[in-house]
Design a binder for these strands. Sequence first.
DNA 1: CTGCATCCGCCTCGATACTG
DNA 2: CAGTATCGAGGCGGATGCAG
Lengths: 227, 227
Amino acid sequence: MKEGRRHYGQYCGLAAALDVIGERWTLLIVRELLVAPRRYNELLANLPGIGTNLLAVRLKLLGEAEVVEQLTSDPDGRARRYRLTERGQSLRPMVLGLARWGMPLLDEPDPQDEVRPEWSLVAVEAMLGTPAAGAPEERYQFQISGKDGREEVFHLEIKEEIAMIVPGPALAPDLLAVTDAVTFVEIGAGRLDPLEAVVLGRLRLDGDSGAVLRCCRLLGLIPSAPG
Amino acid sequence: MKEGRRHYGQYCGLAAALDVIGERWTLLIVRELLVAPRRYNELLANLPGIGTNLLAVRLKLLGEAEVVEQLTSDPDGRARRYRLTERGQSLRPMVLGLARWGMPLLDEPDPQDEVRPEWSLVAVEAMLGTPAAGAPEERYQFQISGKDGREEVFHLEIKEEIAMIVPGPALAPDLLAVTDAVTFVEIGAGRLDPLEAVVLGRLRLDGDSGAVLRCCRLLGLIPSAPG
DNA sequence: CTGCATCCGCCTCGATACTG
DNA sequence: CAGTATCGAGGCGGATGCAG
């Protein structure tokens, strides 16, 4: 926090945090890396509008702050990826909290807006409010397709009353949800009822109705059962 | 999120949140209002460097986003204060989380840095990690003095295994901690041991040693008792 | 005196071009 | 593929002006 860069100059934890992760784009970079380690160009592709110079500056700063590290697995220097350090991972609850806080702000999806199926992972994790108390051990698989036809596959696994996000398909999913990224976010934002999405043909749900209800409840899409 | 202002253009909760509270100074304004409703000039005084125009712009935007509202209690229009709405209050866990995340980043206090005793309220709340399970019902009073001689008084009340921050003095505090804002933050940042601060004469603790230990444990200053 | 609005210099940001 | 260099536009910071 020396001279040169702009900083708040307050001896306060929040100000110190914002000096590191408060600048434009920084938390979105962290969001990307919360999903998985990424290459430089992957980050550029998933953060349209950032400009390559700024991404380089941010990554360097995040590296100095030990939030991000780059692992150069390949000996010839190519194929280096950026990954969150432990300290970076510890930003997860705050990032998820902000993501949840912002979801109701989402309006009609603008066709100009970017939507990536990878973000669904973070969205689902943010929606996991209530710990899955008393829920049976089961697996809900999600297949979210992007505009370019790519499909992100992950599943939610409930084990010992704890729900976990796991990349990739489940072995024997009790529920399969297939949709596109826009529909998925609209449902998460509360702008679209899951049932309505099914009727509109924008969401396909395979599984028994009990699993559907439990999954929706887990994601806060319908109120938890009273009493 | 229409044209005019700069925005991320991502259909994603986090991006939507950052479009509202991601700009410079905004979360620091929220921090100020988390402590108490404030007047325009109070905000200006507690946020050195912001520039009055920017504060006005931020407050207007926060108002439109329904994060902040102004209450004009006084009929003649004077004495209008800014206050967080319910939606603004719901940012509290994320702000506290970021404050806690940033505290270890605090280095040697720069004499140029601003330190305000009001921030101690947020700092203490951020340090309250573990719920006070099994703790006896007692009250720890804090008196944090600023450079200008003002003193912020509040106390921590443990009731039914829940710790609460309450502004103002306690009725019969089991512990009284008197210090200055810099020392307080340094202790919170883990740069200064409470015991060392007492020896240096920068912290005065009145109360029995059991209360001191329980208070320190509650604030994460010493590891919780094992087992 | 409080609560802003206006103006201006500078620094950050965003887009494009270019290099190892 | 992974950045660096450059430059125009606009956000930011500080000083000042002004109305209630």
